[in-house]
Write a protein that binds this DNA or RNA. Structure first.
Lengths: 157, 157
DNA sequence: CCTAAAATTTTTAAGCTTGAAACATATTCC
DNA sequence: GGAATATGTTTCAAGCTTAAAAATTTTAGG
């Protein structure tokens, strides 16, 4: 029987949601730890740096600092530090925005683009191999469930 | 391997697994951010502290530092700092282990036990409300999929 | 034009996180 | 016993992360 078809009776709604969350968190942490380790060992970089490069790779024209922190769901100050170090590594540049002297656009350098393209390819292989356990059918069901799940704000108890 | 499985091209398969991972990561980060914020505002505490208390709550006899870092999947040095601050708050105590002068057992204080019990109850409500979108049936399927998914070590590209 | 409010980014202080090195103690094996 | 090895923990330096405050610039209202 396909895992997706199996059904389990639930006694307590809250407890079941909690179990889902704990399981989600555990998987997510396991995979994150593995990816961090790989990025460190194979490429001498970190997940936050990788995330910033990934966001910039999708936006050829570059992104403002504030846009970066929005899509990455991290604070402004956080992005400041990471971009600083990426500039030091020669992977991105910061360009003043004409017409708004407050803002800065961050863009990949040629080298940044090449290096990220390579890392992204390898990274995709890591992720696939980590999830190798999942059958194609289960993967489809899982993706749909996750994709359709909208996280609400927690309600004050 | 059957025909159906074979017919999915590796490239698409990898892309699909990557999409699952990105979606999983996004949900997990959203929920974590919300929980961190709530813990900070409602209880003046942090997720790492909460995690340590949760682990200790399950083990009435207390846990060695190394056991803590194992179940929490974080480094030894990390636990040292968090426990230090929890001791400062009077929520846990560190007790030398008779028979092994290297080791330390960490245990909840009475106050730690009471405060965690309260926080855990409220926390469960937050999680349930955040996942309110999910129907009971979908929740069952999702839990089974997650629970049966074994994360493998990434294979070198 | 001037001033208040909003927007963009950086700085700061505190805490979290890691891997590696250091340190202390236990255990194993010759 | 003594040496080597293993185990348990802390320390350290570097980087990540946040919320809040500060600094700069733009926009809006009068």
């Amino acid at each position: 029987m396909n895992v997706a078809e199996k059904s389990v009776p639930v006694r307590d709604r809250n407890k079941q949601r909690l179990r889902i969350w704990l399981r989600l968190l555990k998987i997510s942490r396991q995979m994150e730890a593995e990816i961090r380790e790989r990025l460190r060992v194979e490429f001498g970089t970190t997940l936050p740096r990788f995330d910033v490069l990934a966001a910039l790779y999708r936006e050829r024209e570059g992104m403002k600092m504030s846009a970066l922190s929005t899509v990455l769901m991290v604070s402004n100050g956080n992005v400041t530090g990471i971009v600083e170090r990426l500039v030091g590594d020669g992977l991105v540049v910061r360009v003043p925005v004409s017409g708004d002297r407050r803002a800065m656009v961050v863009r990949l350098t040629e080298r940044g683009r090449e290096e990220f393209a390579h890392m992204a390819k390898v990274h995709e292989g890591w992720v696939a191999s980590m999830l190798d356990d999942l059958s194609d059918d289960d993967a489809d069901v899982l993706f749909d469930l996750l994709d359709n799940t909208q996280i609400k704000e927690a309600t004050a108890e």
